[in-house]
């Protein structure tokens, strides 16, 4: 019986950390869907958001989580991420319209270095503690210990994904976003302005990055290594498919759960620490057998 609870605890812990991977993956999916650009800078955006927020709370003198200044800092960071979307569209995307995908990709690598440098240049590179006001005492159900921060993050992520799903399927802008993802030219021809669509997706991706920055910052401390979290999103994307929002979520859950289970149950047999490479191996297997991922859009081809 104790074994079962232990298994459950590992599984749930894995699923919860998977949700956090999903959050980062979501940012990639949004931008990839709407502009076909693999945004390498997503990790840097997470860092920028986290760092800006945590430094603002210090400067504004927020004393405990969710007081007035805390909310103000959140609002300002929000605005910063949206301003970033406008700037990226104006400075990076617009001059590169119609360039090959690889060129756009290289541009986002450049953007990564710029954001990392700018964020740390402005705010400093120390590690900051971030308290979101979630108790650290584990919640105990049966014999299973659950970390409350992960639970809160998972719930908030679920709400955010639901919101995005409604946005994409029900609103005029959401529909336009999907149209652009399908066929740029046709979208232009019916009068959808690509520029403003790009600003919208980069803003949404920025907000997702802010959210990921808060949660990951609270877990690991706000520091440079937040950008590395983005690497964990890669296997998630390969598993779930680059174009699917549900794919990013399910992919994250699978990666989270499988890496923890593998670490605990297979790790000891091979000397441990397989958590770090297991997701990538899983992704490799997927690439061999199902390259579009679990939920990637099938390419519709009429013959």
């Amino acid at each position: 019986m104790a074994d079962l609870f232990f298994f459950l605890e590992v599984l749930i812990g894995g699923l919860l950390s998977g949700v956090l991977y999903s959050l980062v993956a979501l940012g990639f999916v949004l931008i990839y869907k709407a502009s076909g650009v693999f945004n390498f800078a997503q990790g840097a955006m997470v860092l920028l958001a986290g760092l800006t927020f945590v430094r603002l709370t210090q400067i504004l003198g927020s004393e405990h989580p969710w007081d007035g200044m805390f909310v103000l800092a959140l609002a300002i960071t929000f605005a910063v991420m949206i301003a970033l979307a406008f700037a990226v569209e104006r400075v990076v995307l617009r001059p590169l319209v119609n360039q090959a995908q690889i060129i756009m990709f290289m541009a986002t690598i450049g953007l990564t270095f710029f954001l990392e440098g700018a964020a740390q240049g402005v705010w400093g590179s120390q590690v900051h503690r971030l308290n979101l006001g979630v108790s650290e005492l584990p919640i105990i159900i049966g014999d299973v210990l659950l970390p409350p921060l992960d639970l809160v993050a998972a719930a908030a992520a679920a709400a955010m994904v639901a919101g995005l799903a409604v946005f994409f399927s029900r609103t005029r802008i959401g529909r336009a976003l999907r149209a652009v993802a399908d066929d740029h030219q046709a979208a232009l021809s019916v009068g959808i302005p690509l520029q403003s669509i790009w600003v919208v997706v980069w803003s949404v991706a920025g907000i997702v990055a802010l959210f990921a920055g808060l949660v990951w910052g609270a877990k690991l401390g706000v520091q440079f290594s937040l950008t590395l979290v983005a690497l964990k999103a890669l296997p998630v994307l390969i598993l779930g498919g680059f174009t699917s929002i549900p794919g990013a979520i399910i992919g994250g859950l699978i990666i989270g759960a499988s890496e923890k289970l593998a670490e605990v149950f297979i790790g000891p047999l091979v000397g441990g620490a397989i958590e770090n490479w297991f997701p990538y191996m899983l992704a490799l297997v997927f690439l061999l057998f199902r390259p579009q991922g679990l939920f990637g859009e099938k390419i519709i081809k009429r013959v």
Partner: peptide, 23 residues
């Protein structure tokens, strides 16, 4: 109306029509 139709393949027919009303 572009040559080769260029519908938004993953959108439904009605959603395609609605994108035309974007402006």
């Amino acid at each position: 109306v572009m040559e080769g139709r260029h519908c938004f393949g993953h959108l439904t027919v009605e959603e395609n029509l609605m994108t035309g009303a974007y402006t």
